[in-house]
Each structure stands twice: as C-alpha cells, then as structure tokens.
Design a protein around this nucleic acid. Structure first.
Length: 874
RNA sequence: GGGCGCAUAGCUCAGUGGUAGAGCACUCGCCUUACAAGCGAGGAGUCGCAAGUUCGAUCCUUGCUGCGCCCACCA
C-alpha cells in the first residue's frame, strides 16, 4: 500500500489498493509488527499517576486447541483492553495456560495406550516428563492461535499454572491455609472415578438421568420383615443397617432390633434417622456407609461399621459368589440370586434417576471412602459471597449473580487431592512415625521424610491466577499496579469451577482485596439454530478455519455482534461472510476516500461546512457517545450494531455518495476532503478494538501515522450535534427514496437518465438539487421536455419526463396503496383522539404526537387523492 | 426435588406502557468507474395462549402451554 497522494482536484489520485480486502495479506504482517514494536507490553512504572487496566486471560487448557468459545472470550477481552489502551490506560492483558490436571493426563495416557503402554510402565518421573513434552507441543499451537486472532496480550508476562513462579504461589497459599487450619486431611466419602482412579470434587461430577430399576427387597422375615428399595442392589453386600424415620408409626417397633440381610446371613440393626423420607418408597432405607454419601452420614451418626465391598476400579471384593464381578455385572447378578431364594424380591420397576458421571471421561462416578485433603470452605465462601453482596464485585449481567450465590452459599468442603501424577504435588511430608509437616516454599522437609504422592486439583492453582500471574507472593510492581484486575471475562459455565474459587483465594491471599472488580459473563457459542456445538452433531466451527476463509476481523466481528451480556452466541457461515463483507466495505470506503484526497491534516473546520457535512459530523458524534456507553456496559452486540449501521447505511450509502457532488464543487471540495477524512478516522478508531487488523491497515494509510493500536480513543463532541442538519438530510433521504420507488415501480432502468423539473416551493432542500439529481440520475429538462408525472414530496414537486409514457396502472396501484395506508393511519389517530380518557389522561406529548400524525395523514390523503384524480385514464 | 430464564418476521436475536426492529434468507431490477464481498426497490409478524391492571399492553400481574439452563446426598 502506498501513501495516499496529496494531489487535489478533479482527477482522482492513484491509490494502490486492491478492490478487495485480503486479510491474509495483512494480518500476519501487522501482528508481527505490533509485537516487535512492543505495543502490547505494559510497564507498571509508566505514567505512575495514570489509570491502569488489567485482565488476566482465563487460561486455556494446554490439552486442546482453541475453539469458538475461546475466540469469543478472547475477542471480548481484546476489545476491552484495546479500547482502554487507546484511552490512555496502562493496560495489560496477561496470557497463559492451565496445566489441566486430569484432562491432560488423560490425553497423554491415551497416547501411551496407542503404544500399548500405561503410565505405570513409564513410572511417575518419566510420565510427567512426557506430559511436559506434550505441553510444549500443544501449548505452542494454542499460542499460535491467539496470534492469529489478534490477541493484544503482553507476551512478556506469559504464565503457566505449573511454572516455577506459580508453583511457588501454590506452595505459599497451601502453607498459609494449612497453618490457618483451613486445609485438613480426612477419611471421607468422596466422588471417585473408577477409570481415572482419582478423587473428584463435587463440581467435576456431571449428573445425567439414566434409566434404571428400583428394586424392593425384603430384609428380615416374618414380623421382622422390612422392605427397602434400591437402585443399586449390589451395594447391599455392604449394608450395615436399615434406617427409618423416627416418627414413622409403621416401623417404630422395629427400631433397635436387628434383621437378617439376605445372601449374607449377617444381622444388621434398624436405626431411626431424620434423613429418611417416610413418603418415599417404603419409608425404609438400606444403609451402605462405604458406598453412598447419605449412608456415610447416617453411619457416622449411628456409629455403624463401614464395609467396603468394591475396589477402586468398581470390582466387587466381598467374598462370595460376586467377588471379581464389575459393579454393573454384580447388580443383576445380586437380583438374580435374591430371586432364586424365593420371595425376597418384592418388586422391580423401571426408574429414571440422576447418576453422576466423571466430567472428563463420563464414567459413572462411584462414591468411595478414602483419605483425602480438603479445603474448609465455609469462611472463604462467606467472604466470596459478601464481596458480591456488598457490591465490591459486580456480576454482569446481574441476573447471573443468583447462580453465584446459590453455589457460594451452599458449598461443601472442597476435595483438593487427586490421585494423579500431573499437577502440583501436595506439599506435605510424612515422617517415619506418621508425623506430618507442611514446609514453606523456601523450607526443606526433614531428611528422609516422604512427600504425599497426590497432586492438587487443577482449580487450586488456577484460583490463584489473578495474583500469581503478577508475581505473588512477592510484592512486585506488577502486583501493586495491576491487582485487583479490572474485569474478569469468562463463560457462565465456569462460574463455579473457577470464578468462585478465585474469589475465595483472592480475598484470602490478598487480605480482603477482591481479585477483580467486575465479572463479565458471556454465554456459549452455538450454531445457527442455537444448538450446542458438538462433534457428534458435526456442527463445530473451527476459528482457524474462519480466520483462513474470512479473516480474523470477520471472525471477531461475527462473535461480538452476537454477544449480548450473559447470552449465548449463535454463529453461522453466512454471518461470517456478512462480517467479511463489512470489512470489505470499510476497505472500499477508505479506498474511495484516498482516491479523492481525503485527509486529517489541520483543524476540522467549523465554518464553510455543507448541511451534509454537518449532518454526518452530528451523527458521528452521537455514534461515538453511543458506542462508548455500550462498551462500558459490555453491550458488544449493540456497539457492533451501531457501528455497522453508521458505517454502512449512513457513511457509505449517503455521505460518500453525496460527497461526490461536493468533491466536484470547487467551493466545497477542500472541506469535504477534510470531513471525509475525519469521519473515517474516527470510525476506524471506534472499530479498532473489534476489528484491529483492517482498521490498522486503513488508518495508517489514511493518516500516515505509525499505528492505531496506541492512537487516542475518540471523544464525543456534543457541540457538533446539529438537529437542523439531521432533519434536513432525513427529508432529503425521504425525497430520494420516494423518487427511486417511483422509478422502480415505473420500470425505469436504474442507470437510465431521466429529464426532470424540480420545484422546491421554498424548501431548504433546494440547496441540494445537485445531490438529488446525481443520486437519482436526473437530467435537467431539455428542449422536448414533457412533464408526465409529478411527485409532491416534502413540499417539493418533482416532474419527470418518462419519455412521454408512464405506466398508469402501476402508478395507480402505488398511489392507492399509499392512500390506504394514510387512511388507516388517520383512522387510528382519529379513534384515539375521540377517546376522552386518552385525551384527558395520556401525557401531553403523546396526545400532541397523535394530533401531528392525524394532520400529516390527512394532508397525505388529500395529496394522494388529487394525484389519483389527475392520473390519465388507463 | 429446588432455582433461573426464554417464547417477537423463514432462521438467529434486539426492543419499547403510546404507529413493531436488525442481520441473514426471500422477491424484483441493476456490472451506475470505492465496493457484485456491491447498488436500488420490495414482500413478510393477531410480538406463545387466557384472564387481569390501564385511557391504552408485545412490554406490568396471574394462570396455562411449550422449550432451555443451573443446582441437588430421596434410597
């Protein structure tokens, strides 16, 4: 691209821009330049008194590649950061990735499985090394994707949840929590994945309805018979009691007695427990403390023994005929065995109930008693809830705060130990006699002691992200300038996983200072029918594919244009094409401007502007204010919509067209070049946060400046508002549209010149006769002018020479339609004004408006009737 | 089981107590030298159903129906 010619005059300057915007030709080049020039790098020492703005990226899992959801998330953050950077904030957007414990370990284990190996064949050390190798490869791919998207992240601050700095943060907070008694180790019943062979926290379990069977079984016999119902018959092998509600008259006499447990011959007690719902089933519950969370609690309350009958893989270990069977084989086997013993099975009926599955591998989760580490969440969750409750942290949109509270106010202790190898190893060592020590990050454990073999839940380290990325636990300049972060942008799907935990740890570690001031939530990216994207549907769109075909800007614009706060974002190929077309429209508008010598040199004149100039500047300044307001409230869809319409419908369709007349007018050409330059300059600035590449390319060409990345964000200037100019241009637009409509109805070729007499009747539009003639391709009436049609619009009469013949039928049809509309309009208004209550009670302005409508409609009716009467017979 | 949300044009979604909007799709006409990734014109919706409040309801209230999401230790 060459510098625009400064040559003026009638001859269009030569501009070396292709007629189509080719994203591939500019994106890579511009991104490299942005990074090497250091535009994205923040400096906490720069402009010390000035405002700072910080965002930490929700670290993507190193396993995968970025999907459309990431592209949406990143587009939002980039738009926010780029705008603040232009506004003069010291803005930083910190990139990084998450080690994603289970997810990553599973991926690498699958790789190994292809080689016929398991992680145990490698051993812990070699396996972890292998995961690091995978991380290097996969992580690199993700970083490349971020570059393609145009993310203006500060690469010098790139972080990883398992790098050395972050490890130190983990050790530090663990130690603090441990010393404060907020971390403890206990034998509890936890969610266990028999495939991943690890504990899971509550939120790593996904519930789904499953068809099962509810089996009613008779325990005991004769007077002692008591019927229990279960969906998991195999667990009866581990039953150590039957529970009934203490007030249930049916079973009161049974409490304290024992019944015989079928198949085992064991006798188990009947206990009374409030937890039992007398209304449900038979009102009696079998109690298996080792394999059910409720029963575990009942067992604790009644001091019942806990009998483990399954191993960690879900295989029955209870001695007897079922030993060695998988849990799902054992279930029907137990029922069959009961049946063989006669009338023990009372009833079997289908029963749909909710079953927990491992979030990472979909295996049915098995509750399991084991020794695990927990975070005592009560005080932390309380603080996390309060910070939102008292407004220190705002959730956007506010409706989603309810979900946050729901979780924060009802949280169970958080199981943080995982029986994995990939992750932060729990920083606790055990002595030879079972002593426990948690050394600080800079302390050594006693020689000969052994470290706990478990690792921490991956969310433990990501919960530290808003401050670990800035160097915590050290007191760094970054931390002081950029914490708390300005806003957290993420999908509502990880409100519980991540956001709430950052709140807990942030408030705890940073002495009550919240990790972010605003939580801006967005939804999920969906297909054009609102369906979730999934491989099985085949409706997954890869952001890279869109970037290749339509460009990064079009991809970003499509996503942001659909991004209503907290809402899901449907996308479709055609919409991305529309966005690409929009970028191309800007490209060509700027191309036109450059060819005609548009520039931004010197002050924008206040004198000597045409009505059309004043109109576009008025609109521009209103648009700036609107876009500002929308972006402040995370209304990206609205901001995009406003800019799209202003750019396309107002600037391109009207201002650029009308400027052609002005550019031909020596008296107006100079200011027109300046105004055209001004409008594009401001428009490109406003669009830059959303579509950074094309705007940078065009803006630097237009202005000759080095970069738009650090150019100033436009300020709305209310002094440019001009209601008169806006009203006049609105009239002009109506006039032009009306005449075009006539031409179309009459079957006149759009390119066909038509002789016309324009009679302005004192209308201020007279000053725009040249513009009207150009837009409508009207010639002056010549020698043989014969007026055959007239269109009184806005007080203006247009007489057109349609070569002596107009299509009377078409014209009659058009006029009749307009007349019908006007009559309907008048009728409506008349009815309203005839309503006394309306006139008495409605606001003055509404009544006045209705009167205006009526008189306008009546005038239209009179005009149309006389036009119809004047039509020659067909 | 608890909580929340949604129902507006063919599709996806905005929106307002006072004449229904956008994008895409659709129809017709145009290669008009910034742009056919374009230009111009046009069609299209009893704003889910019912009742209530109001001078007036797509908007507020209630009920109903149909969807969706989140949470959940009722076997």
């Amino acid at each position: 691209m060459t510098t625009p010619s400064t040559e003026r005059g009638q001859t269009a300057a030569h501009v070396d821009l292709p007629t189509k915007y080719q994203p591939a030709d500019v994106e890579g080049r511009l991104y490299e330049r942005w990074v090497s020039a250091g535009y994205f790098a923040a400096d906490p020492a720069r402009n010390p008194g000035g405002p700072a703005y910080s965002i930490v990226i929700p670290p993507p899992n190193v396993t995968g590649s970025l999907h459309m959801g990431h592209a949406l998330d990143h587009s939002i953050q980039d738009a926010l950061v780029r705008r603040r950077r232009m506004q003069g904030y010291e803005a930083v957007w910190v990139p990084g990735m998450d080690h994603a414990g289970i997810a990553t370990q599973n991926v690498v284990e699958r790789e190994l499985a292809k080689e016929g190996k398991s992680r145990h064949d490698l051993g812990r050390e070699a396996f972890v090394e292998r995961v690091w190798a995978w991380k290097a490869e996969s992580g690199g791919r993700i970083l490349g994707q971020m570059r393609r998207l145009g993310d203006s992240v500060d690469w010098s601050r790139e972080a990883f949840t398992m790098d050395e700095r972050r490890a130190r943060a983990v050790r530090t907070i663990f130690k603090r929590l441990f010393d404060d008694g907020l971390i403890y180790r206990a034998e509890r019943i936890i969610n266990w994945c028999p495939r991943c062979l690890t504990a899971l926290s509550d939120i790593e379990v996904e519930h789904a309805d499953r068809e099962g069977e509810l089996v009613s079984i008779r325990y005991g016999s004769g007077d002692d018979e008591i019927v229990v119902a279960t969906t998991r018959a195999e667990t009866m092998l581990g039953d150590t009691a039957v529970a009934v509600h203490p007030d249930d008259p049916r079973y009161k006499h049974m409490v304290g007695r024992e019944v015989e447990l079928p198949l085992t011959g064991r006798r188990i007690p009947v206990v009374a427990d409030e937890h039992v719902d007398p209304e449900f089933g038979t009102g009696a519950v079998k109690v298996t403390p080792a394999h059910d969370p409720n029963d575990f609690e009942i067992g604790r309350r009644h001091d019942l023994p806990s009998l483990t009958i399954m191993d960690e893989r879900g295989v029955i270990t209870a001695h007897g005929p079922f030993e060695g069977l998988d849990r799902f084989e054992a279930r029907p086997a137990v029922v069959a065995a009961l049946r063989q013993q006669g009338r023990i099975v009372k009833e079997v009926r289908p029963y749909a109930h909710s079953v927990g599955h491992c979030q990472r591998c979909s295996t049915v989760v098995e509750p399991r008693v084991s020794l695990q580490w927990f975070v005592k969440v009560a005080p932390l969750a309380k603080a996390a809830g309060d910070a939102v409750r008292d407004g220190r942290v705002q959730i956007h949109p506010p409706e989603l705060a309810a979900r946050y509270f729901e979780w924060v106010d009802n949280m169970h202790d958080w199981c943080i130990s995982r029986q994995l190898w990939w992750g932060h190893r729990i920083p606790v060592w055990y002595g030879p006699d079972g002593q426990t020590v948690c050394p600080g990050p800079d302390e050594e454990p006693p020689a000969g002691w052994t470290q706990d073999t478990d690792v921490l839940d991956t969310w433990f380290s990501s919960a530290l992200w808003p401050f670990s990325t800035f160097g915590w636990p050290d007191d760094t300049p970054d931390l002081r300038r950029f914490y708390p972060t300005s806003v957290l942008v993420t999908g509502y799907d990880i409100l519980f996983f991540w956001v709430a935990r950052m709140m807990m740890f942030g408030l705890y570690a940073m002495d009550g200072v919240e990790p972010f001031k605003v939580i801006a939530l967005h939804g999920m990216v969906r297909d054009q029918h609102g369906k979730k994207m999934s491989k099985s549907f085949g409706n997954v769109v890869d952001p890279l594919d869109w970037i290749d075909r339509y460009g990064a800007d079009a991809t970003r614009f499509t996503l942001l244009r659909g991004a209503n706060p907290g809402g899901d974002v449907p996308v479709a190929d055609e919409w991305a094409q529309g966005s690409r077309n929009f970028c191309n429209k800007l490209w060509n508008a700027t191309r036109f401007a450059l060819m005609n010598g548009a520039h931004v040199r010197g002050e924008l004149p206040s004198e000597g502007l045409t009505t059309v100039d004043r109109w576009v500047l008025s609109r521009l300044n209103k648009v700036i204010a609107e876009v500002d307001a929308h972006l402040e409230s995370f209304e990206f869809a609205k901001a995009c919509e406003t800019l799209y319409h202003f750019a396309w419908d107002e600037v391109c369709d009207w201002y650029v067209e009308l400027s052609k007349v002005q550019l031909d007018d020596p008296a107006a050409a100079d200011t027109t070049r300046r105004v055209l330059g001004e409008v594009l300059d401001r428009l490109l600035r406003l669009l830059h946060p959303v579509i950074p590449f094309v705007t940078e390319e065009l803006w630097t060409s237009l202005t000759g400046e080095e970069t738009l990345v650090r150019a100033a964000w436009p300020q709305a200037d209310a002094a440019r508002h001009d209601d008169d100019a806006e009203a006049l241009v609105a009239s002009l637009q109506r006039l032009v549209t009306e005449v075009r409509r006539f031409r179309a109805d009459q079957g006149l070729k759009p390119g066909q010149r038509v002789a016309a007499a324009l009679e302005w009747g004192g209308s201020p539009l007279a000053g725009h006769e040249k513009g009207v003639r150009m837009l409508l391709r009207l010639d002056a009436p010549g020698e043989g002018f014969s007026a055959t049609a007239s269109l009184p619009v806005e007080g203006v009469t247009v007489r057109l020479d349609t070569a002596g013949a107009i299509d009377v039928a078409a014209e009659r049809k058009r006029l009749e339609k307009d007349l019908a509309n006007a009559r309907k309009e008048a009728e409506q208004a008349r009815r309203k004004l005839g309503n006394e209550s309306f006139v008495a009670k409605a606001p003055e302005a509404v009544v006045a408006k209705t009167r205006d409508r009526l008189s306008q409609a009546e005038a239209d009716i009179a005009r149309l009737e006389s036009q119809l009467a004047a039509l020659p017979a067909a």
